[in-house]
Amino acid sequence: MSTKCLVSCFFFFQSLLILGQTPEKISYQATIVNADNTLLSKTRIAMKIAILQNSLSGTSVYEEVHSPVTSSNGTVSLEIGGGSPIRGSFSEIVWSKGPYFIETSVDINGGSSYKLQGASQLLSVPYALHAKTAERIADDGNYVLKAKPISFTTSRNANTEDVGNIIECTADATLTIINNFVDMKIGDVINIEAHNGAKLIVETADQVELNYAKNGNAIFESTLENVRFGLLRKIDVNAYIISGQ
């Protein structure tokens, strides 16, 4: 019996959560359906997850297998980084050397005759993982931290130190992007994280655009033992794009 896997919308928009207690895992959810679009429910299947570097046909830097049981609505939930590794080490992936793509293969009979279901780009790099591997990145022979976590518990304006680093919000607070924030150049980024039930609001001044709306805002609201994350990127003098909220 042939099958197909509805992966991309569930993975990229619902399930990119770095677990607070086990930060080297990414939650992943997919819905498995048969070729006739009926749900494959309450069935033990086998899934192989591969992380490809640079392109859809790029080098596989990590592979693991899982044997989840689909729910009554055909859903499977698993943690990438928590399966049985068959290639590479998840903790050794250097996320700064992307882009990376997630490739999914499935055997609905629970064996090892995997059928490729597709691959999609990991659009939002897991920045908590990036920070963890950053200490291994060499610069002129010296190991340096490329993305420094900055504690954020009190509302304030964005400043020079934030650029290129990680806003690590552990209590409800607001980060404001002021008019003509010249310390952040076009193309520069700020990584955003809200931890363990904290809510981080990113807002802009009256004359500053966020996602093409003046005086816009974005909300990153985490749940207990989870992290919400995103990326703030400057695209013009007073214009920013934010993803992940």
Rank of each mutant, 00 (worst) to 15 (best):
Y240P: 01
V189I: 11
H195W: 12
V163W: 08
A218D: 02
Y114K: 06
A50F: 01
C9D: 14
Y114I: 00
N196C: 09
A171N: 11
T31K: 15
L40R: 05
N165Y: 02
R233Y: 05
C9S: 14
E225G: 01
C169P: 03
S60C: 11
L19N: 13
F181C: 10
A205I: 00
G98R: 05
N142T: 13
V7R: 03
E225W: 14
L17H: 07
P68M: 10
N217T: 06
K199T: 15
Q117N: 07
L175T: 03
S8N: 12
L224S: 14
I80P: 08
L56E: 12
L116I: 13
S124W: 00
T154H: 06
L145G: 02
T174K: 15
T153W: 04
T59G: 06
T153D: 09
L123T: 13
I45P: 00
I93F: 04
S57R: 10
E79F: 15
N73I: 08
A198Q: 07
A138D: 05
S151I: 07
E225K: 12
L52R: 14
A213I: 14
R228N: 08
S222L: 10
I26E: 04
C169Y: 06
V125L: 14
N215A: 15
A205S: 14
T31A: 06
A138C: 07
A147P: 00
G81H: 06
V106Y: 01
L123A: 13
K115M: 07
M47A: 12
G118R: 11
D139C: 05
L116W: 05
G82A: 15
T204Q: 03
H195V: 12
I178C: 02
F10T: 00
I242R: 04
T38M: 08
E168C: 08
I26W: 08
